[in-house]
Design a protein around this nucleic acid. Sequence first.
DNA 1: TAAGATTGAGTCTTCAATCTTC
DNA 2: GAAGATTGAAGACTCAATCTTA
Lengths: 152, 152
Amino acid sequence: MQKTSLDRVQFDAWRSFLVAHAALIDRLGEEMESETELPLTWYEVLLLLNESEGAQLRMHELAESRLLSRSAMTRFIDRMEAAGLVGRVTCDADRRGTFVTMTELGRGRFREAAVVHLRGIEEHFARHVTDAEAEVLAASMRRVVTGLDDQA
Amino acid sequence: MQKTSLDRVQFDAWRSFLVAHAALIDRLGEEMESETELPLTWYEVLLLLNESEGAQLRMHELAESRLLSRSAMTRFIDRMEAAGLVGRVTCDADRRGTFVTMTELGRGRFREAAVVHLRGIEEHFARHVTDAEAEVLAASMRRVVTGLDDQA
DNA sequence: TAAGATTGAGTCTTCAATCTTC
DNA sequence: GAAGATTGAAGACTCAATCTTA
């Protein structure tokens, strides 16, 4: 740490990090789409909802996931709502706000998709990473994220 | 390696990998845009050209970088050409083909941008990763990519 | 007939402006 | 006036169809 310039080892790590990410997202997206008819981004929204308290989130909370801008998220949720996977509920405490909730159909589709997704992570990522490597990777990445957050 | 299901350590590594990537690309893009007026995707195309033999690549070679589809790359290069950063040259050996070349202006803008980009990688990524960690990271990522390629 | 590149149509995203509620 | 969410207009991406050369 505390080096003054970018050396070869770090640069190689950076490049391989980028290439691996692109290839992984591509493959996971293809598999998700072909096996569950669900785009990966739809899965990601369902995942956020599934992990949230009461399976509901505000529009701005979804947008803050950096997945999409606020206005794009509005239209994105429109489409998911039209497909019956999520619903909108006005927020009682603050009537300007809207909660996005997961429907029963959405929950079912999410469960199916989660199986595919987790299998993909295992098959394309985890299988190639030992426990020790995973620990190192996670620790490094957490430091990177913390560094970015501190500077934000 | 050769584990049969996804355990906690690997899953944490996966999540932190995703979060770090999103945050890094976001920040590097913001800095590139604010300091050089160049979108990160434009920089990536200039980088590919700069690294290529003779600073020129065919349209389909650029598209194969997985940055964009072929038709999107056509319009993307239209815009970069209009901005004077790249040019098109018909390929003599195969007159169906087009070479995209870097103009002098493009080279100048690339050099400026590279300074900003490399500084960003150092400041937001490399600084948080020791040499030993970088080696581990690169090795794991290479295995992931090789695995995906082999299955392709 | 196939490969390289472009174009047309439709979809999705973004920025800025707007509406509603605080 | 400010925050939450949406809408309008413009830009950018994708798939499929087209044009050109091999």
